[in-house]
Design a protein around this nucleic acid. Structure first.
Length: 403
DNA sequence: TCTAATGATTAGGA
DNA sequence: TCCTAATCATTAGA
């Protein structure tokens, strides 16, 4: 709404308001609004209603003043300054000013009604939630409880991981500190800027109509602007945490070679089952237990079983690709398995001689039926080796799988 | 520093 | 769902 329209609309209310103002002025200083004089170096138009009771005259008077205000921009700077000063010193100014404030207030309310109460930004909510979950935002619990839990899970109880764990926590604490420092800076800057703008507006409210609600709205705008800056900070922090996580907690990056013992157990099984190197789920679990493979992820048995699966998958494909290279290894394990089997047979024979035939050594032998069968197979393969001078290569199916 | 070894991941197939 | 095959990323040794 343009100022001139505002003025046209408010002329009537001005007149009545000014009547009130005049009455107040009269009661205070005994001076009538109609008693115009030359003030502040500016000549005001001659009075139209001399007795102060003529309503039309007052309207004309107000009209003249408003005309001066509206044409002030058409004049030179000096003239305008002089006229402005004159208007500021005019006795009618407070009345006119309060009415303009009132109108502006009403106009501002209608505009604001359609603007305020923005719904919370979902992106900002996501960032806040993530920072909370990562232990960056919110109360500090020993370097971020969520992060500690994540790091501990990744560590899987391995002693060497504790170094990386503490390193991760240290880095996270660093990020947390930077985040809070920056956040404080932003908040401080926001408060300072808001105070500055508020003071400025209050100062200006002496010379132009500025309502408290308008100041409030301006504060809201400033806060929104600073909030968008804060969002950028939160986004950068989230990215930093993600990079840190991938660097320290990504299982792939934390690859550790299995222990020599574990590799031996897996190799023994592989070469003793070369004709069908596909361990069942139970066999995988048993192997995982035997190997105590808790190096990489180590959370629950399923992960270690999947490690066994990975190992066999890799072994099969690498063996198939280069049988010649693995021949020596195969012979080695075949001999080893045969020796173990021979020892087991000797022990069993000794046992059967020492004990009565009705008391079988069930405790050990029945523990793992599949592994007993493995030993039997090993004996057979040993015999084969003795005749062939090497370990039998597996046959491959048409689809490439080992038969 | 280079390279082979090796555990993990991924895409595609059955 | 499990497998193969290719590839990635890290480790360890020369």
């Amino acid at each position: 709404m343009s100022f001139s329209i505002c003025v046209a609309q408010c002329t009537d209310s001005l007149a009545s308001s000014m009547d009130d103002q005049a009455r107040i002025m009269q009661s205070i200083g005994g001076v009538s609004l109609s008693g115009h004089s030359v003030q502040g170096g500016m000549a005001l138009p001659p009075p139209h209603g001399h007795d102060g009771s003529d309503g039309d005259g007052r309207k004309q008077d107000i009209g003249d003043i408003l005309h001066q205000i509206m044409t002030i921009t058409d004049q030179s700077l000096d003239e305008a300054q002089a006229k402005k000063h004159g208007l500021n010193c005019h006795r009618m100014k407070p009345a006119l000013f309060s009415v303009l404030c009132e109108i502006k207030e009403k106009t501002g309310l209608s505009i604001r009604g359609s603007q305020e109460e923005d719904p919370p930004d979902p992106q900002l909510m996501r960032l806040d939630n993530m920072l909370l979950a990562e232990g960056v935002a919110g109360p500090e619990k020993g370097g971020g409880s969520a992060a500690s839990a994540a790091a501990a899970a990744a560590a899987g109880g391995a002693a060497d991981s504790s170094i990386e764990h503490s390193d991760y926590r240290a880095k996270l604490t660093q990020i947390r500190q930077i985040y809070h420092t920056e956040l404080e800076k932003y908040e401080q800057a926001c408060n300072e800027f808001t105070t500055h703008v508020m003071n400025l507006l209050r100062e200006q409210s002496r010379t132009r109509p500025i309502s408290p609600k308008e100041i409030e709205r301006m504060v809201g705008i400033i806060h929104r602007k600073f909030s968008s800056i804060q969002m950028q900070l939160k986004q950068s922090t989230c990215e930093a945490v993600m990079i840190l996580r991938s660097r320290f907690l990504d299982a792939r990056r934390k690859r550790r070679n299995f222990s020599k013992q574990a590799t031996e157990i897996l190799n023994e099984y592989f070469y003793s089952h070369l004709s069908n190197p596909y361990p069942s789920e139970e066999a995988k679990e048993e192997l995982a237990k035997k190997c105590s493979i808790t190096v990489s992820q180590g959370v629950g048995s399923t992960i270690t079983v999947s490690q066994v699966s990975n190992w066999f998958g890799n072994k099969r494909i690498r063996y198939k690709k280069n049988i010649g290279k693995f021949q020596e290894e195969a012979n080695l394990y075949a001999a080893k398995t045969a020796v173990n089997a021979a020892h087991a047979v000797a022990a069993a024979v000794q046992n059967s001689q020492a004990n009565s035939p009705t008391t079988p050594n069930s405790g050990f032998q029945m523990k793992d039926e599949e592994f007993q069968l493995d030993s039997a197979e090993s004996k057979n393969t040993l015999l084969t080796n003795m005749f062939t001078g090497g370990y039998p290569a597996p046959c491959y199916q048409s689809d490439g799988r080992i038969q």
